[in-house]
Computed example of a mutant assay.
Amino acid sequence: MLNEYYEQIEAIVLNLTLVALFALMGYAIHDVLKKNDVPFIGRAVVYLVLFLGAAGFIAKGLIQVFWQNNGV
Rank of each mutant, 00 (worst) to 15 (best):
A28R: 06
L2S: 05
A59T: 10
F40K: 14
L18Y: 08
Q68M: 12
V72S: 08
E10T: 08
V38I: 15
A28S: 10
V19L: 12
K35M: 07
G56K: 01
L50N: 10
F40R: 10
G71L: 14
K60M: 12
A44Q: 10
V13Q: 11
N70I: 13
L16A: 12
N69V: 11
A23H: 04
F22A: 06
G42I: 07
V32G: 03
I41H: 03
A54C: 08
V65I: 15
N70Q: 13
H30L: 03
V32R: 15
Q8E: 14
F66K: 11
A23S: 08
L16V: 04
M1A: 11
L33W: 03
L50P: 04
A28T: 06
A44L: 15
L24G: 04
A11W: 01
L14N: 09
L16H: 05
V65F: 11
Y47K: 02
A59P: 00
L33D: 04
L33K: 07
V38Q: 08
F40H: 08
N15Y: 09
V32Q: 12
G42T: 07
P39Y: 10
A44C: 05
K34H: 13
V46F: 04
F22I: 05
N3R: 08
L48E: 02
L62Q: 09
I29A: 09
G42S: 08
M25P: 01
F66Q: 12
E4N: 12
G53E: 09
V13D: 07
L50E: 12
I41N: 01
Y27E: 01
R43D: 06
L52P: 02
I58F: 12
D31S: 14
L16W: 02
E4F: 15
N36A: 14
A28I: 07
G26T: 08
V45Q: 05
Y5D: 07
F51T: 10
L50A: 12
A59K: 01
L16N: 13
V65Y: 09
K34L: 08
L16C: 10
K60A: 14
A44P: 02
G26Q: 08
Y47R: 02
N70C: 04
Y27C: 00
